[in-house]
Simulated assay, not measured.
Amino acid sequence: MEFCPTCGNMLQFELPYLDQPSRFFCSVCPYVCHVNNRVKIKRKQRLVKKEIEPIISLDDMKNAPKTEATCPYCGHGEAAFKEFQTRSADEPTTLFYRCLKDICQKQWRED
């Protein structure tokens, strides 16, 4: 993938036509880059899986409000919760829970 050095949009590739070389061109501005040789891959970048950060960390559990919510995993009746606005402002908030049972500590959400 190549990007336009002028405006930053992704360049489009055009196959050769008659005696003209193939080229990359920008659909927004007049930038054109003629390709005389074969395009080589500069480098391959391996994707690294990131760790999922918990919504309610162990430090947050000490200060987070608690409620009587039944854990869907272990059935424990108490959980810490946090409320976030994950959608637009006219939609209801999303509640994120974390089980307070020491063995479980699973997280779930209610939209």
Rank of each mutant, 00 (worst) to 15 (best):
M1S: 06
E2M: 14
E2T: 01
P5G: 06
T6F: 09
T6R: 08
T6N: 15
C7Q: 03
G8P: 09
M10S: 15
L11D: 03
Q12S: 10
F13K: 05
E14C: 07
L15E: 15
L15V: 13
L15M: 07
P16Y: 06
P16A: 12
Y17F: 04
L18W: 04
D19R: 10
Q20Y: 12
P21I: 02
S22D: 04
F25Y: 04
C26R: 02
V28Y: 13
P30E: 07
Y31K: 02
Y31H: 15
Y31C: 00
Y31W: 07
V32E: 04
C33M: 08
H34M: 13
H34A: 14
V35R: 02
V35P: 07
N36F: 13
N36P: 07
N36E: 14
R38K: 09
R38H: 15
V39I: 15
K40F: 15
I41Y: 05
I41L: 11
I41H: 05
K42W: 10
K42L: 15
Q45E: 02
V48K: 10
V48A: 05
K49A: 15
K49Y: 13
K49D: 08
K50E: 14
K50D: 12
I52R: 08
E53K: 02
E53W: 13
P54C: 03
P54N: 00
I55W: 00
S57E: 09
L58V: 13
L58M: 13
D59P: 01
D60M: 07
M61T: 09
K62H: 03
K62R: 07
T67A: 06
E68W: 04
T70D: 01
T70W: 12
P72N: 13
Y73S: 06
Y73G: 04
C74G: 12
G77V: 12
G77K: 11
E78P: 09
E78N: 07
A79V: 00
A80H: 06
K82H: 11
E83Y: 01
E83G: 09
E83R: 07
F84D: 02
Q85N: 12
Q85D: 14
R87N: 09
D90R: 03
E91F: 04
P92I: 14
T93W: 04
L95A: 03
L95F: 09
L95N: 05
C99Q: 00
K101S: 03
D102T: 15
I103Q: 04
C104A: 03
C104E: 06
C104G: 03
Q105M: 02
K106H: 13
K106D: 13
Q107E: 07
Q107F: 07
R109L: 01
R109Q: 11
R109P: 00
